[in-house]
Design a protein around this nucleic acid. Structure first.
Lengths: 342, 342
DNA sequence: TATTAGCACTCACTGGAGATGAGTGCTAAT
DNA sequence: ATTAGCACTCATCTCCAGTGAGTGCTAATA
């Protein structure tokens, strides 16, 4: 992107800010009124015309004010946006909202989503990712029927997942207990990734294993960890999002609800942000949700990444307000989960 | 409700059916055209006027057709609605949709909701009720930190629930195992209700218990089962519901989404239907969702009630189509869960 | 006596005409 | 380089007449 001179930058910034506040096209006169650039509307118009030329602004029709294009927002985010830190009071307040003692992981996540949504007035997202990267704590087997077992595993952070697998042999509850004891001893503290590795190695190494128990244990846990568990996604504040003027038409509403309902798109989105550090902003065509932006951050504990959270809203989001909230929340959640793991 | 003569009944039925089909006020001429009662529009108008007098119909404004009032729908449901049985082909098809082998309880419930919604074109609901009535199968404890324990319990049907409790004493994993072994031996096959009773009795009986293990086991499991776990509710097909003309205005949409988002209202609704047998229809002011109806049924296995499922849609729902679907689905799910429990 | 044809009336909805106002681009003056 | 001035555009609002589906009432009819 070519450099803009200072005046153009100022005007672009003014337009973006005014548009964020009002959701209406911004005209040249309105700008001179609200900000005092000591410029006449006509001069502003000239600049606006240039900015339109550059693809940073557009006008919905010939005789209306300008609105920032996606590129305009991108420029604003990249070079104009100043993210203020939260004041200590704000931090304290935020910390006070986040009291999770005695809550289950699921409830914590849900609550975090709700709070994010409430603070931002947009929709809050929290994703607990595929189990793969989390740290193994315990595994239990429950015999459901002759060859169907319920596997329950618990991560270091207390996240509980379960699934049903088929067992080759019919094992009674006592045998299962022995197996889970064995596994818990062997695998405690490893990431699921590492557990998989280890199992794979041992399986190969000891094809003709004498130790029947161990053999069964290995085959069972392999089956249990074979395919991924789905990501869990918590969405909160959909209805707040619907209050935004960009979703005031029935069609737009339906589109949004459909997207949120399937969850798939949102999961993919947050998955993509998994790898990065700090706050990320996805905007417009980055994401499969026309006209929307996502501000996200990852949370993690000492042992590595655990999940992502964020706020999704119209492209015309109040970035300078929401970014620090998302950032700080991610930090808080990370700390809480560290404490949980102890 | 006073008896209506046959002609009035016929005309009321025609109006309700036409309104269900079109969502538009029904006029006298339209009726004579579509059904051949051998009556002139004027005669129909007289009858309609009577029905309005009785509170079964109303007109949105002076010069428009009539729409059924809530009372009108109620009358239709109570005395005019004929529920056809599903044909064998339909039953077979439905059975084919419901293949749940190897799925977790949660996934089954979600899938049932989706199918219900897809078949009815309205929103599908499935609720797994408070754990209280389900049958105990297994309990496990996981030590999270010094005095925080994760309790996992599994019902006979394979439903997994977990929560965090505080423990008085710091117990290591081996002790916990012994305790859970003890509990699993003692309590297997009882309903949670019965488990509670039993624990309460034993606690009182043996206040000065020598058996330390048993004492700890009792106090722990008491804490674990103390307060109810929340009902779990699965909602599917919200966006289908939004296609209905009664929710075409932004305000109505928002109202609906808000209601669905909080889940509270829906849970209360399904809770109320818990006690009854067979299909139930809640309509209009019965429920806290203006202009909507709920068709629900309970599912259960040999050991008793397990949950409810249903379809929620506009009051102008196609009852004769949806009622048998809900009914049959509840039966199917009951059977599946019986098989799971084995 | 129940039914119906006829008629005046109501009211949502539609589409066109005109007024309004916020905004633009261009040009010429400063 | 900046700005005042001006003609022009276009969404939006309001007013208005026309249309059509529907009603209630009354008098004629079978």
């Amino acid at each position: 992107m070519a450099e803009l001179n200072e005046r153009s930058q100022n005007i672009l910034e003014a337009i973006v800010k005014d548009y964020i506040a009002s959701a209406e096209p911004v005209g040249s006169r309105a700008i001179t009124r609200r900000h005092n650039f000591n410029l006449s509307p006509a001069s502003v118009r000239n600049v606006m015309s240039d900015l339109e030329e550059l693809g940073l602004l557009c006008s919905p029709h010939t005789s209306s004010g300008r609105i920032p294009t996606e590129k305009g927002f991108q420029y604003y985010i990249d070079t104009l946006l100043q993210i203020r830190d939260l004041s200590d009071t704000e931090k304290k307040q935020l910390r006070k909202s986040y009291r999770f003692t005695g809550m289950r992981m699921e409830d914590i996540m849900q609550e975090v989503g709700r709070i994010l949504s409430g603070l931002s007035k947009y929709a809050g997202l929290v994703m607990v990712p595929k189990f793969a990267s989390t740290v193994f704590r315990q595994i239990e087997f429950v015999r459901l029927s002759q060859n169907r077992l319920l596997v329950i595993y618990v991560s270091q952070t207390g996240l509980v997942q379960n699934k049903v697998i088929k067992a080759d042999a019919d094992l009674n509850q006592q045998q299962l207990e022995k197996i889970s004891n064995y596994l818990n001893r062997e695998l405690n503290g490893l990431t699921i990734q590492e557990v998989r590795e280890k199992l794979k190695n041992e399986m190969q190494e000891e094809k003709n294993l004498y130790d029947q128990l161990r053999k069964k244990a290995l085959s069972l846990s392999c089956a249990a960890l074979q395919d991924e568990v789905e990501d869990q996604l918590f969405v909160a504040g959909t209805s707040l999002m619907l209050e935004q003027p960009e979703f005031s038409s029935p069609d737009e509403m339906r589109r949004l609800i459909q997207t949120f309902e399937s969850k798939k798109i949102l999961i993919d989105l947050l998955d993509r942000s998994q790898s990065a550090q700090g706050v990320q902003i996805f905007i417009g065509s980055d994401i499969d949700l026309k006209g929307c932006s996502l501000i996200s951050a990852n949370f993690s504990n000492r042992k590595g990444a655990l999940g992502s959270l964020g706020v999704i809203g119209p492209m015309r989001m109040n970035y300078s307000q929401v970014v620090p909230i998302v950032d700080f929340t991610a930090q808080l959640v990370s700390r809480v989960l560290d404490r949980e793991a102890e």
